[in-house]
Design a binder for these strands. Structure first.
Lengths: 219, 219
DNA sequence: ACCTGAACACCGTTCAAGT
DNA sequence: ACCTGAACACCGTTCAAGT
């Protein structure tokens, strides 16, 4: 009808680009899990053959790195008027929130190497926060490893408690509360229920940030 | 030749059992990575069709749980004459050593649910150690989450530093030491080199165990 | 009881061909 | 420039059939 370069096809979709592809991939991962993301399925979710995606990414690995970049955007180091140590804590809290929001995709964070430019820029900003807190390079390395280790490890564990994993051996969760066979596991499991995870995570953060406060003086 | 029930086939292999299958699977994972383990390949490494494995495991998930059990055997909670807090620390140090020894298989630990009987028994013994240290159920839950979180998270990060991951985007590691573009990343990366990882891990453990010592008195 | 062979419904990736 | 179709070499899993 019109004079412009509209496609004649009925469902004229927007042209693909890396960002839109990665966003759709993240949605699929959120819904169906990381293992079930396939190039073919992703293509058809975008109204295209799977093979078309290879024009935008060199392979599935590069696509997953783009999804990881979306996660990093959701945990951008906070800038603001709060004391830097507060902003540092907020940033790592945001990391845990990303794990809760994207339990399947979160595995990309500890699993894929940070080779993207966006990832290196993310690191650079995060380390800027450590520096504002008063860390020199060595202290940054140490506290970064402790904080990032605890946050990703604890978040992975939370993902395990919150979600179901279907293909496990037939032993059932009831065993967790079989005080006859596993008295200690049963007693401790009570304190690891979902509604207590906020407090437990806060306990670990308090512990690490107390040490950070002791060993540094803000610039 | 002999009178017993020897097979007539030339390469009479030992009969399959779950443990031997899982051990071979772990070897294959160590050599070629978790993603490349397939039932067919595992079968042929055992001199059998892949489909034969389904007589011993209900599916690949159950097989992976059996591999996880092999890892747990390598980090068995220490029993001995040392103070319990020392044995607790040794147990988590052993966890890191497992990550270094089995960098690909280690991902099973934070990724698969502990539904096996062997895994629940492992937990029970580990929590026994927390109890010996003087933790009540709530303290066990808190320090278990902090310790296990830090150890698995930091170990995953170490695996990333130590090993290569082939299918990433073309950005190269040289960028880590490009002080023009990433000054903080470059400065901190110096302190995260492989030969310093022992000390950094020890720093985190010291931090957590100091708090554990403060908040408990051994029974 | 234990294993095989064929089959089904999928994968990632390459590549010539289309428009 | 961007996408398609067919092809290649794989997957996990099921199931009837063999021994």
């Amino acid at each position: 009808m019109s004079d412009s370069a509209r496609k004649s096809r009925p469902a004229a979709r927007a042209p693909l680009d890396r960002r839109r592809i990665a966003q759709t991939a993240l949605q699929l991962i959120d819904h169906h899990g990381l293992a079930r993301l396939s190039m073919r399925q992703l293509g058809s979710a975008l109204g295209v053959e799977g093979m078309a995606l290879y024009h935008h990414f060199h392979g599935k690995g590069e696509l997953l790195d783009a999804v990881l970049e979306l996660l990093l955007e959701e945990m951008e180091p906070a800038i603001g008027l709060e004391p830097p140590i507060e902003r540092l804590r907020q940033t790592f809290e945001a990391c845990r929130q990303v794990a809760i929001r994207h339990p399947h995709a979160f595995l990309l964070l500890p699993t894929r190497r940070f080779n993207t430019e966006a990832a290196l820029n993310y690191y650079e900003r995060l380390l800027g926060l450590f520096r504002e807190v008063g860390c020199d390079a060595e202290q940054s390395a140490r506290f970064f490893r402790v904080l990032a280790g605890f946050v990703t490890g604890a978040s992975l564990a939370e993902i395990g408690s919150r979600a179901k994993q279907p293909d496990a051996t037939p032993i059932r969760l009831e065993n967790f509360s079989d005080p006859e066979r596993y008295p200690l596991v049963s007693a401790v499991a009570l304190h690891l229920q979902v509604e207590r995870l906020d407090a437990i995570f806060g306990f670990g953060m308090d512990l690490i940030f107390a040490a950070l406060r002791e060993q540094t003086s803000p610039i």
